[in-house]
């Protein structure tokens, strides 16, 4: 019975994949209906889809943001001098 349900309405495992496929590529009509029905009935997958989209916007902002000003990482003086001397020899 569970197997039959999984084929008709997707398993959570497959739903978590189609959620990514939907956001990054595209779903075929059958997959669209399957995912729609599944997330309509499964709270965990509904939460997951929401979180996956939230993560997209968080990662997008995080990757494009400059590091907080407090970051103390600096390029070593040796490397800076090397850059300058390399260029002088060009």
């Amino acid at each position: 019975m569970k197997k039959l349900m999984n084929i008709l309405m997707l398993s959570c495992k497959r739903a978590s994949g189609l959620i990514e496929k939907k956001a990054n590529l595209s779903l075929n009509p059958f997959e669209k209906i399957q995912l729609f029905i599944h997330t309509g009935m499964c709270d965990a997958c509904k939460n997951y889809e929401k979180q996956s989209r939230d993560l997209d916007s968080i990662l997008d902002k995080h990757i494009h943001s400059t590091k907080p000003e407090s970051s103390k990482d600096t390029l070593s003086t040796d490397i800076k001098n090397k850059i300058i001397s390399d260029l002088e020899n060009k």
Binding site: T66, K67, D73, T74, I79, K80, I83, I84
Partner: peptide, 18 residues
């Protein structure tokens, strides 16, 4: 370029590290 190294190398480094 020498001036730019002293002005921007650290910023570029932090950016690339991130």
């Amino acid at each position: 370029i020498q001036e730019w190294v002293s002005l921007y190398a650290d910023d570029l480094f932090r950016w690339a590290l991130h």
